[in-house]
């Protein structure tokens, strides 16, 4: 399971929030997609996609961000990306330090190549706080300060 905690952060005090701090923890299988790191903190400005009417970042933005910047291995993209147009996103991430805060704010998330459908593949459950994301609007869900987003895979053994 990967759990991502979102915290708003500001560049300076009294300024409007600049982006979100992502505190990610992973365990039990899914953590391997972030290079097997158990805990990591990322600092990113969440981009907003052109398709979204609201200026607030949504779940779709978060998934784009994960796909573009956080996945260590391109092969893991199939967990989040359902190919529609087949555009390869240039993944130059892997600049995250284990357990540390990545300096600087990533700004390159805005050039969005949104032809591709970024969502999750069958077998992955997305939970917003304590709720199935389907009840929260799935990709349209507007992220809030303090949200806990979990990705977990369904289990079949017994």
């Amino acid at each position: 399971m990967i759990v991502i905690l979102l915290k708003k952060f500001q560049k300076r005090r009294h300024q409007a929030a600049h982006g979100y701090m992502l505190h990610a923890t992973g365990k039990g299988g899914l953590d391997v997609i972030f290079g097997g790191q158990k805990y990591a903190t990322f600092k990113f400005k969440l981009p907003t996609t052109s398709t979204t009417t609201t200026t607030q970042p949504t779940m779709q933005d978060l998934l784009h961000l994960i796909v573009k910047n956080l996945l260590v291995d391109k092969k893991d993209r199939c967990m989040f990306v359902v190919p529609v147009s087949g555009i390869e996103i240039d993944n130059e991430a892997q600049n995250v330090e284990n357990g540390g805060v990545k300096d600087g704010v990533k700004e390159d998330g805005e050039d969005g190549d949104e032809e591709e459908e970024v969502t999750v593949t069958p077998g992955i459950l997305v939970l917003v706080n304590d709720t199935d994301w389907e009840l929260e609007g799935e990709l349209e869900y507007v992220l809030e300060d303090g949200d806990l987003i979990s990705f977990t895979s369904t289990l079949h053994g017994g």
Binding site: G29, C78, T121, P122, G123, I124, S153, T154, H156, G157, G158
Partner: peptide, 10 residues
């Protein structure tokens, strides 16, 4: 169903 190669059995 989930992709067959993603399933872990006991």
């Amino acid at each position: 169903p989930p992709p067959a190669n993603s399933i872990t059995s006991c």
